[in-house]
Amino acid sequence: MDGSEPGDGQGFSRRDFLRGAATGAVVSSLVGQASAADPPAPSASAPIVSGAVTAQLMVNGHRLQVVVEPRTTLLDALRDGKAPDGKPIDLTGAKRVCDRGACGSCTVLFDGKPVYACSVLALDALGHAITTVEGLGDVDRLHPVQEAFVQHDALMCGFCTPGFVVAAAGLLKANPHPSPEEIRRGLGGNLCRCGTYSRILEAVAEAARTGKGA
C-alpha cells in the first residue's frame, strides 16, 4: 500500500492539524447501518481545521498518510485520496453509490463495526482502526466470508459485493452464529441491484456454520 507504514494505532499528528485555521468543529456524522449497534463515539477532542491537511489514518493495520479536507469523507479519502507525495491511496474496494447512507456499498469496519464510509468524515476516523474489504483478504488468501461468496455465487456485477462482504464479516464478528433472520437484519443496510440476496444469505449462513466467519 503506497504511502503507508506499519502503524501503532495512534496515527494522528495533532501538530499537522492545528496548522490549519480554526473555522469550525469537525462534526461527527457517523451513520451506523442496521447491524451496527451503536455508532462509535466521536473523537474526544475533535481537531479544528480548514483547508487541506495531512492525516494519518489506520487502515488495514497500516498507517496511511492522506491529504484531506475537513469535509472529506472517509470513503473519498480511501478511493480518491492521495498521499502527500501525490500517490493515490487507491483503495477502491468500497464503492460510492448513493453517497448518503442508503445503500451500504461503501461499508467498512470502524473499530470492527460496519459503518457507511460515505457518512463518516475522514477526520472522525483518526485514531480508529479502519478495515476495508481489501484488508479482509486478498485473492489468494480470501477471508472465509469472501470464500463463501465465491462458492455460492453470491455476486453478479459485483459492485455491491465489497459492501456486503464487509457487512457480513462485521456481523459475524459481533454474532458468530446468527439465525437466518439475524443475517437478513444484519445485512438490511445493503442493497444489490442484480438480485444476489438469496445467495448472499446462503453464503453468510455457511460462513457462520463453518465457524470461520470471524
Binding site: G93, F149, V150
Partner: peptide
C-alpha cells in the same frame, strides 16, 4: 464459480 469472483469479493476488481 466465476473466474473473476475472487477479484470482486476482495475489492480488487477495477
Amino acid at each position: 464459480t466465476r473466474l473473476e469472483a475472487p477479484l470482486k469479493v476482495a475489492g480488487r476488481a477495477k
